[in-house]
Every structure is written in C-alpha cells, then in structure tokens.
Design a protein around this nucleic acid. Structure first.
Lengths: 230, 230
DNA sequence: TACGTTATTATGTATATACAATAAATGGTT
DNA sequence: AACCATTTATTGTATATACATAATAACGTA
C-alpha cells in the first residue's frame, strides 16, 4: 500500500475539518502546497478535494481558493426501493393484492401532476402491499397510458405496477413528498386500522425525457419508520 | 469547448442507459473501446464511468468489466437544514421559544441512544420553533453535557440549541428516523392543535468521533411536507 | 477616486504513461 | 471431472505535463 492515496488523503483532510484544524469558513492551503505536504502529485490532491467538495464540505473557486463550507448543509439519503424488496429485506414474505383497477379520465389534480390534457386517459390502480399476510402499505397510483401503453398488457396480478414500472422505465426522474396524514375511511379499511390514525405517506411523480409516466401516493401502516444516516 | 469532456461523456452514457441502448444488467464496452469511440483518453472515460458507478447506475469489477445495475436503487436526498434557515427559506420570520430547560439524569431510553452511564447528566431542552409568530415545529432535545460542556454557557434564548450545536460540532455523524405519529397532550398543546392529529416527526441522534452529542425529536405541525427529488 | 484593462493565480480538465489489484479464464495435474 | 497454479484482461490509481477557465489583484488612465 502506498503511503497516500486520494482516499487516505481525503480521510485525513476530513479529520482536519472535524478536529477544527480547518475551521468553518477557513481558507485551506492551495493544491500545490498540499501536494507537497502529502508528498504526492497535485492531481491526487485535486481528486481528494473534489470529492469533499462534492459532499458539500468544501467550496472551491478558481483563483479564489478552497474554503471549508461556512454553514454545513447535511443531507440524509434514503433508498427508495421496490416495495417487495423492502418487505423481504425486513424478513417477511411479500405479496400484493389489486383492490381496484380501471381506465378512467383524469381528475384535475392528476392532470396537473402528469401534465395531461383533459381528454387523456389514465390507468388507476389501487394496490395493497402485504407482509406475512398483513397489510403493509396502501398504494394509489395513476399511470399515463400514452407514455407506457404496454402497462395494459402487464400481468399486474403477478408483478406489482410499482415493480413493473421500475423495470420498464429505469432511471427516470422523480419528485418525492413525505408527510403525515390521518387515515380516512378508505385507507383505514385497507390498512386494517382506525380512521384518524397517523399514517406516514409518500407521494411520488415520475417522468422520463419530458414525458410524465406515473404518480402515486403510498400510505404506510402506523408505526412505520423510515431510517437513514446523515 | 472540447467535443467531449468527462461531463458530456457521462451525460451521453446516461442517455444510452435511459434509452435502453445499454439495458439493465447488460455488460457495456470496456474503457479502451469507449475511449476510442469518444475519441478521448481512457482516464476521461474512467472518470465518467466512476461517476455513474458512484450514483449506483453502474457496477464495475476489475477484469469483470462494467455492467448496468440490474435493479436500479434510487435515492432521495433530503437537505437537513437548520430550522431557522428552513423557516426563512419559506419566506417567514423565524423565532423560537424555550418551553423548558433543565439539567437532569437520563432516562433509560436516552441513555441507550446516547450510550451514557446511569450517573451521567443530560441537558433537556424543549423548544418551540415559530414562523411568523405561529407554531412551526416542537423540539425535544437531550444533550450530553460531558461531550459539549460549553452548552451550559450558550445563550440559548438567542440562538437555538439546534443552531448552536451545528456550529459548534460541525460535520458530525447522525442517525435519522422519519415517521408519523398522533399528537399527544404535550405536542398538541405546543403546536396549537388537537390530540390525535397526525404529525410528521424526525428523530435524530448525533455523534462525532465516538462521542455522542445529542438526540432530539422534532414534531412538525400538521400539513408539513418534506420535499425532494429522486 | 473611479473605472476599465491587463496580469496573475488557483482550480478544472485532458492526456500519455506506468504500474497495482482483482477476478476471470486457462491449462495442467491428479 | 476436480482441483490447483498460472496467465490474462479489466479496472483502479498515481504522475508529470499541458493548457483552459474563472476570479481576483494590479495597473494605468481619465
């Protein structure tokens, strides 16, 4: 092993920030000095510094030099898995049940979310996701038929719309909104709970290359926790 | 501008994945071929490929080559701001009110979260964060005195514990748990709402270099939405 | 002083080269 | 076939070099 790789240099720099040697807002030495200090090429130092800048710890400007970010903005990163995998990762047996599915005209709010015209039709699917035979999450979904006509022939009893879309339209873009909401009559019944129970909800709208694919709202059964690391 | 930078190459590769030219699970050409195709050095292709691999779109193995990730795992990244900045970003005037503050022994659950001993004391602070004079979020916080003794002299009426800690202990590590919970008597009163109202909550435990700093639970007023992009 | 131009400096990026590390493929021996 | 050692292909990383780009600093002129 070499004494200093871009990795070890990055770690060393991180500890210099955490220890306060490089304080918030401080200007740190220029690349050439650091390269000399670490005994490596400027390119190696550059790689380490860029990595820290990507993480939001450093701010770099041409000619202006590199500073430790004054007000550290931290991010929490959440994995958005296919629900089946999520349930299985918790050690439970997954299956899903389609509660309702129909081709219909779009409502105003859905048209807005999917940027649709009044005459466009959408496929509306309500799915209950289950873990070990018990309700886990209730999903209301609207799919833009024009964007993915193949959905009409998909075996949605076997593979959930969630999973089918992930595989058919990979790496799409999306908006996500998390919130808490009291269960209404429909969701309470589906999730086997009482009206008013606090439910964790996720709304997601997905598009790919300027075409809107689908929007959905997911209601998790009470007690659900979304965990992450800073 | 050069015809191909690592950036334009990365974008081009992304569109090849999104269009299906490089399908899920497929092996893509080796770096030397791609370098020839794009008319650039292998190092440039390598940088683009590594960037996509960091994002989780590609899986790379020495000798094994590079494949498009079979099951794309998407991440939602949330900014965890200082609450004052959050409120101000929404266009409101921020201020906070300390509802209760006391030095106390730790309860069993807090001791577990902060890895404390039974005799260790903690500073317990309950804060109401307000936007334009109305309740915005209610915060229960426990601070490990041993880790940050200076907190005892901090002007917490002027600067919230939240903000003071961010500036004093930058770039710490943390756990985050999001969930929905019905308001109890205390939270309902603080947030000027009814018992049972669905509240969005965030729990966060923070440590730095093996020392546990603080743990807190934040209850947002009903209707709060956490937004993000995939 | 104020303002516009030029020089300077730090970072950003590309390249050719070299070698390391890993895992797959190959081949030989039992 | 099965197992082990050897070869080979591919990515990972470091380096020296060169030039581009952006922002600051320095300078000169009105």
């Amino acid at each position: 092993m070499r004494p200093h790789t871009h990795n070890t240099i990055r770690e060393n720099m991180l500890s210099r920030i955490q220890s306060g040697e490089w304080a918030l807002g401080d200007k740190i030495p220029v690349e050439t000095s650091l390269a000399q200090e670490y005994g490596c090429a400027r390119a190696t130092v550059n790689r380490a510094l860029q990595s820290l800048a990507d993480q939001g710890l450093l701010i770099r400007k041409r000619k202006g030099g590199t500073r430790v970010c004054k007000l550290p903005v931290r991010y929490a990163k959440f994995e958005i898995p296919v629900i089946r995998e999520h349930v299985e990762a918790l050690g439970s047996v997954y299956h899903h049940k389609i509660l309702d599915m129909k081709l219909s005209s779009s409502t105003a709010s859905i048209r807005e979310r999917l940027r649709l015209d009044t005459k466009d039709k959408v496929l509306r699917v309500d799915t209950l996701h289950m873990a070990d035979g018990h309700a886990f999450a209730y999903e209301e979904r609207w799919i833009n038929i024009a964007a993915v006509p193949a959905i009409l022939n998909a075996p949605l009893e076997q593979i959930s719309a969630n999973e089918w879309l992930v595989k058919e339209v990979p790496f799409s873009n999306g908006d996500v909104i998390f919130s808490a909401i009291g269960a209404d009559k429909t969701t309470a019944k589906a999730l086997e709970t009482h009206i008013g129970t606090a439910l964790f909800t996720v709304e997601r709208t997905t598009w790919s290359l300027d075409e809107f694919i689908t929007t959905m709202k997911l209601y998790y059964k009470e007690g659900y926790q979304l965990r992450s690391r800073l």
